[in-house]
Amino acid sequence: MRDHRLAVYTFNQFVAPYQSDRIRGFREAEPGTFLAIENAEGFVARSGYEGEEGPSSWGEQVFPHCWTNSNGDGWAPSTLSLWASLEALMAATYQGPHGRALRNGKDWHVPADHIPEYVLWWVAEGDTPDWAEAVGRFEELMENGPNPRAFTFKTAFDPIGKPYKPDVARMKDLARQTAQKS
């Protein structure tokens, strides 16, 4: 997997407009969560958002066809990033500030059992996906289920398309390494 990076696109919809009191906990956690993710073992890079401070955007941000803009603010929580391994992403996702925010997600996000919250896929080292590709992979997962082009932690594949079981011990080790850096 040395010549590949794991891409991840996350998507959700808020239960209220981003600037509302209902989403305040998310807004307050967001800067620290992004910082923790960027400092996590195995983090490679993330897209920023057009017109905002931080990393540059990897193309024009678009949303999946399932997005309804029900809040009317034209915004939905989504991220696009690259990781060294599935285990590194899992460690950062379920531990630390992101893990805490994830556990509070039910307070901020619209429940949608038929819509995935994320999609994973492999890219060649040196390649950077854009938002349109990410949404395409997300929609592929939503329409076809996990496959080597669009998968999840639960049903993962390696870069050549073989089923892959994450190394839990490696994930825990990466989480410990990240915690020691904090």
Rank of each mutant, 00 (worst) to 15 (best):
L6Y: 06
Y9N: 08
T10K: 15
Q13R: 14
Q13E: 15
Q13K: 11
Q13D: 14
F14Y: 13
A16Y: 03
P17D: 12
R24M: 09
G25K: 07
E38R: 15
N39P: 10
N39G: 15
F43T: 08
V44Y: 02
A45H: 09
A45C: 09
R46A: 12
G48W: 08
Y49I: 14
W58D: 02
G59Y: 02
E60R: 15
E60Y: 04
T68S: 14
D73T: 03
W75D: 14
P77Q: 02
S78K: 04
S81D: 07
L82P: 00
L82D: 00
E87K: 05
T93M: 07
Y94M: 03
Q95A: 11
G96Q: 10
G99P: 02
G99F: 04
A101E: 02
D107C: 02
D107R: 02
V110L: 09
P116L: 01
P116K: 00
L120M: 09
A124W: 05
W131H: 13
A132W: 00
A134F: 01
E139R: 10
E139V: 00
A150L: 08
T152I: 06
I160G: 03
K162C: 05
K165S: 12
A169L: 04
D173Q: 15
Q177H: 08
A179W: 06
A179G: 03
A179R: 14
